[in-house]
Design a protein around this nucleic acid. Structure first.
Length: 269
DNA sequence: TACTCTGTTGAATA
DNA sequence: TTATTCAACAGAGT
């Protein structure tokens, strides 16, 4: 499920383990989440390392360990991280567990779209180098937004917002929320937004606002967003737009279920 | 039974 | 060459 604020929430779930050594690593080596990595080598290299720090970029997480060990986790569609007592026994979907003296750090993922990568060495791993600026960073300017959209003459703006190399961490619900706040129809070609000064500004502001709101509300304790977001109305057929009380529409756009408010998102006509 | 799903990737196509 | 579409991945829920 996770988009950037949910990923940040999960990253923090391993914070109790910061500063402590790994005493044992348990893996289900045959599962799909290990497709990019040698499970046995991973086990060997993380043994006795100390969890030193962590950060997120978009939907990706980086956990740094002592001895120049770098672990990259991606939660896919159904992944999650949690902390369990030291005597924890991994269940069916607990593919990767770092045991410490006082707790277990668990990566669970039923659907196994998640991914794990590992790097050993003082240099920054290739998968954590040259990452694009995130929406919430100063390097993400209105001009950058225009340049990201302009090449897409026909692709719907909704589909372009989901591209992680352009908008790290934006997922399906955030893209819908952003377009709803900017009052842009999700089918609008991306280049058309880039060419309209006013709508480009609206989209830029909505992106920053939705990312800030999501980080503030969801990342600390996974609070429910307030009812004046689209979020609480989008999940099932028959929802109504909080701004107009008119019916929301759910349809497939760019291959993903999209919820939007035709009465509210009227541009372009 | 047959559809859905907060994601990504690589192949096929335009 | 670049943009776009689509199937595939694998399980749980409805």
């Amino acid at each position: 499920m996770p988009e950037l604020a949910e990923v940040e929430y999960y990253r923090r779930q391993w914070n109790p383990g910061l500063g402590s050594r790994i005493t044992r690593v348990a893996i289900h080596g045959e599962t799909r989440i290990f497709r990019d990595v040698d499970g046995d080598a991973l086990k060997r290299e993380l043994a006795a390392a100390r969890l030193a720090a962590s950060e997120t970029h978009g939907k990706a997480m980086l956990f740094r360990f002592s001895e120049d060990r770098w672990l990259n986790l991606h939660l896919g569609m159904t992944g999650r991280l949690y902390t369990a007592p030291a005597e924890f026994v991994p269940g069916k979907w607990d593919h990767f567990v770092l045991f410490q003296e006082d707790r277990a750090l668990v990566f669970a993922d039923p659907r196994q779209f998640g991914r794990l990568r590992f790097h050993s060495g003082s240099d920054t791993p290739p998968w954590w180098r040259d990452l694009p600026p995130q929406v919430q960073e100063p390097g993400f300017s209105r001009e950058r937004l225009r340049d990201l959209l302009a090449p897409h003459r026909t692709a719907p703006i909704k589909a372009v917002l989901l591209r992680q190399e352009k908008f790290p961490g934006i997922g399906n619900w955030m893209a819908d929320e952003v377009l709803w706040r900017a009052r842009i129809r999700p089918t609008c070609p991306a280049a058309r937004v880039a060419a309209s000064g006013r709508k480009l500004s609206d989209l830029f502001a909505a992106l920053k606002e939705v990312v800030d709101d999501a980080m503030r509300v969801i990342a600390p304790d996974w609070s429910d967003p307030p009812d004046d977001w689209l979020f609480n109305h989008r999940w099932r057929d028959g929802g109504t737009c909080p701004r107009t009380d008119a019916s929301l529409l759910r349809e497939d756009i760019g291959g993903r279920t999209t919820c939007w408010s035709p009465a509210w998102q009227r541009w372009p006509r």
